[in-house]
């Protein structure tokens, strides 16, 4: 499958609207001079699991705050299930795990989860929410006496407790160990498997690739790529071509056929290339073949290429392919 066209179905015909869980159109949020979110367009269909991927300060949490109606956009519009975020929240259709939230002290895990569940019109059984988050054995413990990872699971249970249609998770795995992460993603997929829509943010493309149907890469408040993990890797350029410079000149390398970006690391030149064959042929013609290597771009490469400020070219490719 090719790139998912995210901006394609913002047109509000009846059926498209019904199938839409989240719709951002031209959303901007500024803090003084800082444009935290800078013209974001995003549509999430019901039942989809979407990852918001971006580095620190990309605008993920700001986007999520606006999605939840906690923060009004400076301009543009956010719609959830065809209405305002406030309405969707009041109807109990939203559950969320906020990035900086910590559970309140002096309550037990069960008391907290049961309280949140009871505020929703059709919550899941408290025991089910606890089981999904892997908290059965900790149910009677005080929330303030848990480890960081256990606390994280409590916050996940709080997000699920009301059995909401849309679950929003801001960096849900930061405090978890390897096993905790695995359990968490298994629970998250179980939740998505119930037909729920899930939007989560992360710094890691691998995590996004393994757990989301679709990845939306955000950088400096804009969507720079949008599609499946595969599609994003393809967008960024299939390969990394590298060779020894041997004190040779570096100018002109970035303009070679297929090259989307150039990096010099010590004595080696690293070319990201959308067409490695053409790039290698051109290098051969120039006699620049010492220690020549062609490697497929890794997910991390793809992510870095999409978001690193030095590599405007690659980001532009990402945008181009999306349109």
């Amino acid at each position: 499958m090719g790139m998912t066209t995210a901006t394609g179905n913002t047109g509000t015909t009846g059926s498209a609207r019904d199938a839409t869980a989240v719709a951002f159109s031209g959303v901007v949020k500024t803090y003084g001079e800082v444009r935290a979110v800078d013209g974001l367009d995003l549509t999430v269909r019901r039942g989809e699991t979407v990852a918001l991927l971006g580095r620190n300060g990309a605008g993920k949490s700001t986007t999520i705050s606006m999605l939840l109606g906690l923060l009004p956009p400076t301009s543009g519009e956010v719609r959830l299930f065809g209405g305002t975020p406030e309405r969707a929240v009041r109807e109990g259709r939203i559950g969320a795990m906020l990035q900086d939230g910590r559970p309140i002290p002096r309550v037990t895990v069960r008391e907290l989860v049961a309280f949140v569940a009871a505020t929703y019109p059709k919550p899941m059984a408290v025991s089910e929410a606890l089981a999904l988050a892997g908290l059965e054995t900790l149910a009677g413990q005080r929330v303030d006496k848990l480890s960081g990872g256990q606390t994280q699971r409590v916050r996940f249970a709080v997000a699920l407790a009301g059995d909401p249609e849309l679950v929003v998770l801001d960096e849900p795995t930061t405090a978890l160990d390897v096993e905790g992460r695995r359990d968490f993603w298994r629970a998250m997929r179980a939740c998505a498997g119930r037909g729920n829509t899930v939007v989560f943010s992360t710094h890691y493309l691998t995590e996004a690739d393994e757990n989301a149907d679709r990845i939306v890469v955000v950088d400096r408040g804009r969507v720079v790529a949008d599609g499946t993990g595969e599609a994003i890797k393809r967008t960024v350029g299939g390969a990394l071509v590298s060779f020894d410079l041997a004190d040779g000149p570096t100018d002109g390398l970035a303009e070679l056929p297929g090259v989307t970006s150039l990096e010099i690391r010590g004595d080696r030149a690293l070319l990201r290339s959308a067409d490695s064959d053409a790039t290698v042929l051109a290098l051969a013609r120039l006699g620049l073949v010492r220690g020549l290597q062609v490697a497929p771009a890794s997910l991390e490469d793809a992510f870095l290429a999409l978001t690193s400020s030095a590599l405007e070219g690659a980001a532009a490719v990402g945008e181009g392919a999306r349109r």
């Binding site: 929240v89 109990g92 906020l98 939230g101 309140i104 019109p121 009301g162």
Partner: peptide, 16 residues
């Protein structure tokens, strides 16, 4: 509660 982010968490429950 505000410092812990609990007021924000309450605002995304159906409680007005």
């Amino acid at each position: 509660d505000k410092k812990l982010g609990w007021l924000r968490q309450l605002r995304i429950t159906p409680l007005s």
